[in-house]
């Protein structure tokens, strides 16, 4: 474990806490893409298949449980809770995310570390996580105004994988045979997708203005 990876995991955890805060404190999920949340639930379910078979550390197991339960709780709440469900932007959260799932699955069948169920699904979860934010970014562009908690949620979510890139550079430099090309390249693509959001977030912060994404 290195400081970059720990910072990345904490930033990821904070993004989930900010989202839970927004939904439970405001009893609203306006501005949140249910499709992105469903993709994240799928990412964690397919990535942490080794939860019960390979024990790495208490920290690792705990974090996996937190990520799986929180992502399922958010999807369940956005679909099930009548008060929250009413605030869901159903008519603008229309990105066809099934194509993302299909594309990532085909790619995982072609590009993986080993052709086993666990490794193919792991590669699938890495590719899917890289593109899972697209429905959310599309929804924010369509909805125009972004409330503070939603903006912070997306900001922390984008920042976490940037810390992981620093972690991979650090491990590549300090560990003999550390190569994790699938995660590294996907992580670069994932972070690049946030580039324009980071830019508009910085501009709005500098001008102390409301965050607006151009349509």
């Amino acid at each position: 474990m290195n400081i970059f990876r720990f910072a990345g995991d904490m930033t990821h955890l904070i993004s989930i806490l900010v989202l839970l805060l927004k939904i439970y404190a405001t009893k609203s999920c306006s501005g949140i893409s249910l499709k992105t949340q469903e993709l994240y639930a799928l990412v964690f379910l397919t990535r942490y298949l080794d939860l019960f078979t390979d024990f790495i550390s208490l920290y690792n197991t705990l974090m996996k449980l937190v990520f799986i339960t929180s992502s399922l709780a958010i999807v369940w709440c956005m679909r099930g809770d009548p008060a929250v469900r009413r605030t869901y932007d159903k008519e603008i959260d229309t990105f066809r995310h099934y194509f993302l799932v299909l594309g990532c699955f085909v790619l995982a069948l072609l590009l993986h570390e080993k052709f086993t169920v666990q490794e193919v699904l792991w590669a699938f979860s890495i590719y899917l996580e890289a593109v899972a934010i697209i429905p959310q970014l599309v929804l924010l562009q369509r909805s125009g105004n972004v409330d503070n908690l939603t903006g912070q949620y997306v900001l922390f979510l984008g920042a976490y994988r940037a810390f992981y890139i620093l972690n991979w550079i650090y491990r590549y430099l300090t560990e003999a045979r550390f190569t994790r090309w699938i995660a590294c390249i996907s992580g670069l693509v994932q972070t690049a997708l946030y580039a324009d959001f980071f830019y508009y977030y910085f501009i709005s912060w500098k001008n102390n203005a409301k965050l607006k994404l151009p349509a």
Binding site: R5, H12, D54, N60, K64, Q118, R180
Partner: peptide
Amino acid sequence: ARRDGSKDEL
């Protein structure tokens, strides 16, 4: 970590 010790990250 799989048998080959990989995948220790979240």
